[in-house]
Amino acid sequence: MFEKTFKDFNLNFSALNESNTFSSGDLVTGQISFELSKVTKIRSITMCLLGKADVHWSSGSRKRRRTYYAKIDFFNLKSMILQEGAVGGPAPLPPGRHVYSFTCQIPQGDFPSSFRGPYGQIVYNLTVGIDRPWHMSKDFVTQLNFVHHVDSNQPELMSPLSGSNSMSVCSLSCTSGLITMTGSVGKKGFTRGETIRIICNFSNASSRTVTPKAMLKQKQQYYTREGVHRRLIAKKLDSVTGLPISAHTEETHTEMTLTIPAESSLTISNCSLLHVEYEIELSLCQRASPDLTVVFPIVVCDIPLRPHYVD
């Protein structure tokens, strides 16, 4: 068996940063090491660097169950770490510890960040394969944490967001009262763990009490290759409820805050099979009537944004 011959197999990377992430164009360097318990012939040690996305889900009843599946390879790079005895056959390696260094470069390209969800994933794998005569090839797979860097120089990410909405509410006497809501967020781009400050102004001319609420949502959308079929998941990540606003109240000002969870995925908009989006939903909740809402789409980045000042 493989484990009886190869002891203490390790695959180690050289970290490029504190978060141990990789991005487009980065050079991946490291070592593989193992201990041989006896003289062993090895045909080759290969390395494969693969970036891919795949989605899969099923729908319908048990009798009419339908499965959807799609896959895209961003890149698939293969190289040789060791190739012994190309002419005379595999050369034997002596017992003891063996260490081999490797280097590979992630291609330049607009590749999406790593992600894993219930109906799909975006993964970047480094696979080391050991091939021996008269044995099944043995593969060791390690995942790279890949990050797509958003261009922080985009003006729209630092631009404030604002929106308003209003509706008339008819009471039992059918006297209409207007409810208005205006909200604003200081910018569009945020990082994981950052707090979002929402400034709100409300006016309630109706005869009902309304309650303001802010919610941070994540939307995961999975697509087939043609984009004809879609699977959507919406998750509430954080929410806050403000003080009720009494009937016939004018110009109520309040502020609410939401926090992006530190473990949240980054926004993904550059993959045809899988999107991850975020939005802030500001609403006024009332009984027996639809909620009044304003939605702000935001972007979760990996690098803190810095305002650009013009002299």
Rank of each mutant, 00 (worst) to 15 (best):
E3Y: 07
T5D: 05
A15C: 07
E18T: 14
S19N: 14
S24L: 00
L27M: 09
V28Q: 02
S33W: 05
E35M: 08
L36R: 03
S37Y: 06
R43P: 00
T46R: 11
M47V: 14
G51D: 01
H56N: 14
S58L: 08
S59P: 01
R66M: 10
T67V: 12
Y68T: 12
Y69V: 05
Y69R: 13
A70V: 08
K71V: 09
K71M: 12
I72A: 03
K78M: 11
M80P: 02
G85N: 12
A86H: 15
G89A: 10
P90T: 05
P94G: 14
P94K: 15
Y100T: 05
S101D: 15
I106E: 04
D110R: 08
F111P: 05
P112E: 01
F115S: 11
R116V: 09
P118R: 12
V123A: 10
V128P: 04
G129Y: 12
W134R: 10
M136F: 15
D139V: 12
D139M: 14
Q143W: 03
N145A: 02
F146P: 01
H148Y: 08
H149D: 09
D151Q: 11
M158K: 15
G163T: 08
C170Q: 09
C170V: 11
S173T: 13
C174Y: 04
T175N: 11
G177A: 12
L178Q: 12
M181Y: 02
M181L: 13
M181G: 03
R192Q: 06
T195N: 05
T195F: 05
C200V: 13
C200Q: 14
N201L: 08
F202A: 10
F202W: 07
R208I: 06
M215L: 11
K217H: 10
K217S: 08
Q218C: 04
Y222K: 06
R230P: 00
R231N: 12
L232K: 08
I233W: 04
L237Q: 00
V240W: 00
G242T: 00
L243T: 11
L243E: 13
I245T: 00
S246E: 11
H248K: 14
T249Y: 09
E250V: 05
E251D: 14
E251A: 11
T252K: 06
H253S: 06
T254L: 14
L266N: 00
T267W: 00
S269G: 05
S269H: 12
L273G: 07
L274E: 01
L274P: 00
V276P: 00
E279I: 00
I280D: 00
C285H: 13
S289T: 06
S289N: 14
T293A: 05
V294A: 02
V295E: 03
P297Y: 07
I298N: 01
P304I: 06
P304W: 04
V310K: 12
D311H: 13
